[in-house]
Design a protein around this nucleic acid. Sequence first.
DNA 1: GTCAGCTTGTGAATCTGTGCACATGTCTCT
DNA 2: AGAGACATGTGCACAGATTCACAAGCTGAC
Lengths: 220, 220
Amino acid sequence: MARLPVYLQILVDQAEAGVANISSEGLAELAGVNAAKVRKDLSYLGSYGTRGVGYEVDYLVYQIRRELGLDHDWPVVIVGAGNLGQALAGYGGFTDRGFPVAGIVDIDDDKVDTVVGGARVRPLDELPQIVAGRNVSIGVIATPPASAQDAADRLVKAGVTSILNFAPVVLSVPIGITIRKVDLAVELQILSYHEQRRATAQSGGQLHAVPNEPGRGATA
Amino acid sequence: MARLPVYLQILVDQAEAGVANISSEGLAELAGVNAAKVRKDLSYLGSYGTRGVGYEVDYLVYQIRRELGLDHDWPVVIVGAGNLGQALAGYGGFTDRGFPVAGIVDIDDDKVDTVVGGARVRPLDELPQIVAGRNVSIGVIATPPASAQDAADRLVKAGVTSILNFAPVVLSVPIGITIRKVDLAVELQILSYHEQRRATAQSGGQLHAVPNEPGRGATA
DNA sequence: GTCAGCTTGTGAATCTGTGCACATGTCTCT
DNA sequence: AGAGACATGTGCACAGATTCACAAGCTGAC
């Protein structure tokens, strides 16, 4: 379920704030969803709540981490050291949350050996060694659109089984490989769509909150 | 509908490749979705297809652009000139696709007046002028989590009506404001969940195949 | 002109996810 | 110990999205 990471985020915050127990309603409020939905989601993990009391924050954090496979680190390899790739490599939010950058590669010799975010950019050819050496199973594609499919092919060949794709193209991968796509321009286009509606719905158009699309991505 | 931007992307590619007409099946293939879904989505815009032939690519591009409000530019303002904010400001994919960066602001005086991606970082206080001056209606939050709510409040106060939030927190905004959240760590966590399942399914010695989720097109 | 082959547009069935309502279980106070 | 307050877990009904299946319509060939 795509909401578990959001709950986890909130629960960790709460734990740091010293909160020991939380009710489904409280969690729902913080996550901006319905309380029943929270209970359904959490009951999927098992019965970890106590009636009359709520959920023990620490234990819930542990269980969600376990379910998401976050009980150990998942090193990632980044393909493409352009603007986005560099930012991702330097973005502390990755390492902090269990996804250390095992390496960043680029096909451009001018970029190779430059240092970004504490990691030295390495040539594309070394991808297999990086993946094998650090047992990497997650790859991030931050290349221009034209190179994205090649990057995906190389990642799969090197043994990566999950890919996070920032390039605005639909990738084709063998069955069994999990792909998620994040297209920044698409996000903005969806916002502009709502702006557009706002502008044209001058006469009594109802404005409502628009939730993110849950569970994008696919396992081929 | 959140799939229109994906179709648009593909159609523009096809137009550049010289394709004049495309069938719902062809488009569905490229988008990785069901053909009937494509037809339903497109019929929502009106009847722009020709039976026996398909859809005229150029005309469809025009209609989708119109529907998404992409017939003119939407300037955006970026709050936060850290790693991510700088990358976004320098990321050509924004300007290219109709979202020029009207300005980037940061609360940190050390960052103010540095130049990133062709734009000079300006102090947070100037946000209202930037928004008013360029008629900006879309804001991007690329601040640390702790500052994100303040950034949202300032954006709303300045007159922005749509927000793209990269900070890993749930923002609360007045009704009528459109919010979309992109949490990079959440994306990775969802991948790690799949990796986790993959691993346990294997070591658990199950005789049946890992239940792959059916390939479904995009979201969010 | 008409026939064969495609492809759209859409009613109908189906599936998925959501939210309500309530029975069940836990805690606290007297 | 019993009662009242509170919160979980879940059956059920509903809404929206997805897919199927097919009638309607276009094109080109003969």
